[in-house]
């Protein structure tokens, strides 16, 4: 086994053509989750109750809404990266693997879109 061409080694992108990008993004989103999900859990526990008025007035605060949007984007990005690795390790049939990875992308991007839309709707006070 060789080490590739000089140009290939300089680029450092390897056979998957993306180098360590996936690995690095997983670490970045993990660090983000460490802060954001901890904050979310702590906030939920500290709320006096989880009734509609309590929760929506909490989300109307700009800082809370911004943090929730960052949380939704970061969490679903991390979900996409993490489940991709799990699928690649355990689903061996190429066709099934492709199908599951497509579903995973729909789920992750759809979940982020639904969450962010919902947060904005509540934050801007237009929830029905």
């Amino acid at each position: 086994m060789g080490n590739g061409t000089d140009l290939g080694r300089v680029r450092g992108l390897g056979s998957a053509k993306s180098g360590v990008h996936h690995w690095w993004m997983q670490r970045l989103t993990a660090a983000g989750n460490l802060l954001l999900v901890s904050w979310f859990l702590f906030s939920l526990v500290r709320l006096p109750n989880l009734e509609y008025a309590t929760v929506t007035s909490w989300m109307e605060s700009p800082l809370v809404a911004i943090a929730l949007i960052l949380l939704a984007a970061n969490v679903f990005w991390h979900i996409r990266l993490g489940l991709q690795v799990v699928v690649e390790d355990y689903v061996h049939n190429e066709a099934s693997k492709l199908g599951v990875l497509i579903l995973l992308n729909f789920y992750a991007i759809g979940g982020a879109a639904v969450s962010i839309f919902a947060i904005l709707r509540i934050a801007f006070g237009s929830a029905a």
Binding site: T56, A72, V75, F76, L83, I119, R121, A127
Partner: peptide, 27 residues
């Protein structure tokens, strides 16, 4: 990780969406 990704992700998005759709949906 997989459990949170599926169950947690669905509950989180569902919880937010129900709140955005009004008090009776949230209830």
């Amino acid at each position: 990780g997989s459990g949170m990704a599926v169950v947690g992700g669905l509950l989180f998005a569902g919880w937010l969406l129900s709140a955005a759709m009004g008090e009776s949906n949230y209830a």
